[in-house]
Amino acid sequence: MNMFWDALAWLVSPEQYTGNAALQILLAQQLAYTAVAVVIAAVIAVPLGWYIGHTGRGREIAVAVSGAARAVPSFGLLVLLVLLFGVLHKPEAAVVTFVILGIPSLLAGAYTGLEAIDRRVIDAARAMGMTEWQILWRVEVPLGLPLLVGGLRAAVLQVVATVTIAAYVGLGGLGLPIIQGIPLRRIDQVLGGAIAVALLAFLLDALFGMLQRAAVPHGVRAAAAPSNARRRPLAAAA
């Protein structure tokens, strides 16, 4: 328990917020790498996932690729890409690593969001004379948005946790206090850095959890409300 309080004391110490390795600077680096990687991953994965979900083509390949990407050891991939890119291009190597880790969740969220839609809704849209493009943008994308945001939520958490290893190749981030504290046997510093990463992940998870709930279309929420109201009296009677 003393180690935990020592870590909290290290976190709130004024000296941790001055200099080039101040915690607010490391936090900004952590968020910057996360944002860049997730945006690039979304540009790649979301259109592909929508295509798979809309047409039903290539799902097996997508599942296989996503599974393989999730199995890749992130630290080994980062070191390999740094060696391939060269020491002068370590930021690019790190971003590529984080993009690869972020793609599977975004891809799965994009195509499962469309696959989960009741086919009768799609058939009704076609019967109304909508084109495939209109069906995608006016029906499938809005209804599949909650699962897509869920995939985005998972990708952000995966990437923000993995960005911690960027400090091993001199790129900063909240992993820096951890790797600096290990050889010095500064348990308070190591645990303080780990707490900072965990708090950041918790806050981001809460934020994207609220976004995921807000992404549910109003009509779907309105339709679910009466069924929930009917279930409550039945539960009370039981």
Score class of each variant (00 low, 15 high):
72 V>R: 00
72 V>Y: 06
74 S>V: 12
74 S>G: 06
75 F>H: 03
75 F>E: 04
78 L>F: 03
78 L>S: 01
79 V>W: 00
79 V>M: 11
84 L>Q: 12
85 F>D: 07
87 V>E: 14
87 V>R: 14
88 L>W: 08
92 E>C: 02
95 V>H: 04
97 T>F: 00
100 I>R: 10
101 L>K: 05
102 G>P: 08
102 G>K: 13
103 I>N: 10
106 L>D: 10
108 A>W: 00
109 G>W: 05
111 Y>Q: 05
115 E>L: 13
115 E>N: 10
116 A>T: 13
118 D>L: 14
118 D>H: 14
119 R>G: 15
120 R>S: 13
120 R>L: 13
121 V>R: 14
124 A>C: 05
124 A>F: 09
126 R>V: 10
127 A>V: 08
131 T>S: 15
132 E>D: 15
133 W>G: 09
134 Q>K: 14
135 I>G: 11
136 L>A: 12
137 W>G: 10
138 R>T: 11
140 E>N: 07
140 E>C: 08
141 V>S: 03
152 L>N: 09
159 V>N: 10
160 V>H: 04
163 V>E: 01
165 I>D: 03
167 A>C: 01
169 V>M: 05
171 L>F: 02
174 L>S: 00
179 I>E: 04
179 I>A: 02
179 I>L: 03
180 Q>P: 01
181 G>P: 08
182 I>M: 15
182 I>F: 07
184 L>W: 09
184 L>P: 02
184 L>R: 15
187 I>N: 11
189 Q>W: 09
193 G>F: 08
